[in-house]
Structure formats: C-alpha cells, structure tokens
Simulated scan of single mutants.
Amino acid sequence: MAGFTQPVYEVIAFSLQSFSVYDDNYELFETKYNSPITVSALSEYKYQILDTVSIQNRKTYLVYFHPKRKKRAAGLEGLLYIDTENYAVAKAIMRIRGVLDISAVHEFNYIDNEKLWFPADKEFKIVKGKSKDDIKILGETFKFDGDEESAKRKKQSSDFSYLLSKSYNFDVKYNTPITIKHDAVAIEVTSEAINRDENFWRKFRTDSTDIRSNPTYIALDSIIKKRKYEKKLRIGRKIINGYLPLAASRFGLAIFVEL
C-alpha cells in the first residue's frame, strides 16, 4: 500500500503466483495455465524423473515437466519434488521463458505429527528475456530495455535488474476450528486494519527496512501522485459499478452516464 493515501485493495488481489500448487489451474503473473499435477495434465505435459533428492531428511523424486506441443506463447515448465512415500509436493518450481523470464518457487515444511507437507514460503521473480522492444510491466513501474541487433551492444542497467517478491507463512496453527462467513470472498479486510499503529505492524515484520529501502517509500509517494494512479483507480471503480463520470456541471454536481 506504499504511496497511496488510502488502501487500494485491488492491489492485494493482484496475483503474481498461485497460493496452492494443487489447484487445477496454476496462475503465474495474472495468466492461468493447466497445473502439471491436475487430472488432465498427462495430455499436456511430458515428465522426466531426473534424480532422487533428500529434502528435510525425506526422499523425493525430482521430476522435470514441460509442454508436449510447442505454442506461440511460452508454456509452463518446471521442477516438482515429489515425496516418495506419500507422493505429496515437497517443493515446486514453475517457470515461463519468453520476452520475460518468470519463475515461481514454492517451499514446504514437513510436519511429522500431521504427516503432510505444509506451505512455508513462496518466491516470484521476473528477469529480462530476449526482446527487441522495451518491456514495461506493472504500470511502467518496472522497465527492461530492448536488445539491439548489434553484436557490440553495451549492457544496460535493466540487463542486471530483476523483480523479486517473497512471501512467508508464520504463526501457523493446525486443526483449529474456524468459521468462514463469506466463502465467496477471496480477501476480507477488517475495518480496523487501516488504523493500526507502527507498534502493531512491527510485530509482524519478518525483516526491517534499511538505508536503501527507506527512500523507496518517498519515491512511491511521488510516482503515484505524479501519475495520478489514485484518480484512475477511482474512475475504474465507478465504471465497474456501471457508471462513467463525464464532467462536472455548473452547479458542482458530477454527471454520470449509466452503462
């Protein structure tokens, strides 16, 4: 939420990668692919057992998968670490290689008492691929310069840049009865969430800010204000609700067109 005067919950819903690797569709950077472990996966992917690897003192099969048929758009490929005893996923690496090299890693912890692998953390990374044109992502927040055809091309700053996002699960409890009031809602935010003080958030930070990250918040404030992102989001919400604001009348009243 850095840079916004009020929380913009649409940002939370933006999906860089799926939370679960067990869903029929795996989502990577807002694009859905058939999961390599879904029931129909054998008709789409080829599999190869590369090795047997130990993770947390448990044997796993290291399985490489990739699409059977070549398509215009890059397909999902990666590695699955499958527990040799219960055949659960102990680790997963998903990857798309095209004009952008996008990868997602899912790490799990084995819970002895429950006899299962539970999600521990996940990582999402974007690296520059091969493209003659400039690439702009996340509303031009992140840019990669295009590759020139000249063999003597000098390295640009974006050749060494990458986008990295990490998420960690903590304070995990098992077999705790819960009641989901709104099962059709993916994200629910309590009314007091935006009024928490600094001491509250400090308890839940897994890392501290440093001398490099502190100026980032100032830069985000300036970028969002200059590009008027909040105004664009307000207009977008009204359009979704079925109204398009056109102009203000001479009496200061907004004029809306119902869609």
Rank of each mutant, 00 (worst) to 15 (best):
I240T: 09
N113L: 06
D197G: 04
D210P: 03
D133W: 15
I235V: 15
K154N: 13
I135Q: 14
W117R: 03
W201N: 11
I135N: 11
I239L: 13
N175M: 04
T176S: 02
D121T: 05
T179N: 14
W201F: 12
S208I: 03
E198M: 08
S213C: 08
R237S: 08
D145A: 15
S208V: 09
K232G: 15
T216M: 12
S157E: 14
K152F: 15
F170C: 01
K232S: 11
H182V: 00
K166M: 09
N175R: 08
D112Q: 11
A193I: 08
S222M: 07
A151W: 13
V127N: 13
R205G: 10
A120F: 08
S165R: 05
L164D: 07
P215H: 06
F160C: 04
L220S: 08
K130F: 13
K125H: 10
K173M: 04
E140S: 15
R212L: 14
P119A: 07
P245H: 03
R196V: 08
S167I: 01
D183Y: 01
R202D: 14
S191W: 02
R237E: 10
L138C: 06
K128I: 02
K231I: 12
I194F: 07
E198Y: 10
N175F: 02
I194P: 11
I224N: 04
N214L: 14
K226P: 00
K125A: 03
K115W: 07
G129I: 01
P245V: 08
D121W: 04
S158A: 04
D147K: 13
T141C: 05
K228E: 12
D159A: 01
K122D: 02
Y168K: 08
I235Q: 08
G129T: 01
L116M: 15
K154Q: 10
L233H: 15
N195G: 06
K231R: 07
S131D: 13
D159S: 11
